[in-house]
């Protein structure tokens, strides 16, 4: 009979992977069967880019930072405005006038000093988007205008990057997830941006802050699921939320075999910019 051998070195391997502080910080994740130690390690190694530090990006950034996503990029050209604070919960009154990316970075690091935050204090355009998204595993679209949404879609499809699309207005929100090789892209569903002035922006139409919170959190959840492999993503499905009716719905989304960017018949080979409606220009 073999005597027990204490292989301390083997456990040192574990303790090097997770400090006791990390085990405590992430204990509620590690306990979950669907995430566990492996899933938490994946989160800690993951790189997520959030485009837009506004109503959607704010809650998503906070939850992804708290979840321990190792590298978070945040892109936004704007500065914090008093009118943002009704929903953009990552910024505070004291941040008014500061670049949103700096305010967002400070809030994320205050929650979780272990993570790395990269800031992009610039507009995302066809010129810079491919180089920026290339370094990330998952992209989160938290923008508030159609030209940006189509640009992010096209660039992610062309660079083969998964991303979460979302939009909010008034009491409603929607989101879907694109994964390369699976399911439709945003352009399969919405071929072109709507004509100028056909759809109001949330600046003109208004939006309830908590709706941004709900949808932004769902985007963070999609990122966590993509990274850890837990559950089913919103690929090939559009999730809609109607706050007034307290209703969630999922609508199946087919792929468009003639899609201008993700099909074999592709006519878009490089990202390009649509003209931004005048009201979106500050």
């Amino acid at each position: 009979m073999r005597m027990p051998v204490l292989r301390a070195a083997s456990f040192e391997r574990n303790s090097m992977a997770f400090t006791n502080e990390q085990l405590e910080r992430y204990s509620r994740h590690i306990i979950l069967k669907e995430i566990g130690p492996k899933g938490q390690k994946k989160l800690m190694k993951a790189k997520v880019l959030i485009i837009g530090a506004g109503g959607l990006g704010a809650p998503a950034a906070l939850y992804l930072a708290a979840a321990g996503v190792g590298t978070i990029g945040i892109a936004d050209a704007d500065s914090v405005d008093l009118s943002n604070l009704q929903r953009q919960v990552i910024h505070s009154t004291a941040d008014i006038g500061r670049p949103k990316v700096e305010s967002a970075r400070d809030s994320m690091l205050a929650i979780n000093p272990e993570i790395t935050v990269h800031t992009y204090h610039e507009y995302i355009t066809s010129e810079n988007i491919s180089a920026i998204i290339r370094d990330y595993d998952f992209i989160l679209d938290g923008t508030d205008n159609f030209p940006a949404k189509f640009l992010i879609n096209d660039a992610c499809v062309l660079e083969e990057k998964p991303f979460s699309h979302a939009g909010i207005i008034r009491f409603e929100g929607q989101l879907m997830t694109y994964v390369p090789g699976e399911g439709p892209c945003y352009r399969c569903v919405f071929k072109e941006p709507p004509p100028k002035d056909a759809v109001p922006t949330c600046r003109e139409a208004g939006v309830v802050g908590a709706v941004a919170g709900v949808i932004g959190c769902l985007q963070a959840m999609e990122a966590v699921k993509y990274i850890t492999g837990a559950g089913d993503l919103l690929t090939g499905r559009l999730l809609t939320y109607n706050a007034l009716r307290s209703q969630f719905r999922t609508v199946p989304l087919p792929r468009d075999s003639h899609c201008a960017v993700c099909s074999y018949e592709r006519t878009i080979h490089v990202p390009f910019d649509y003209e931004l409606p005048t009201c979106d220009l500050k």
Binding site: L6, N20, E24, S27
Partner: peptide
Amino acid sequence: FRITDTVDITDVVCPVTFVKAKVALEE
């Protein structure tokens, strides 16, 4: 028993006790 590994969870409190054991089992 032919013990492959040991883990000491006396230095942590609930729920990290179980979490630390779970991480060791994972390996």
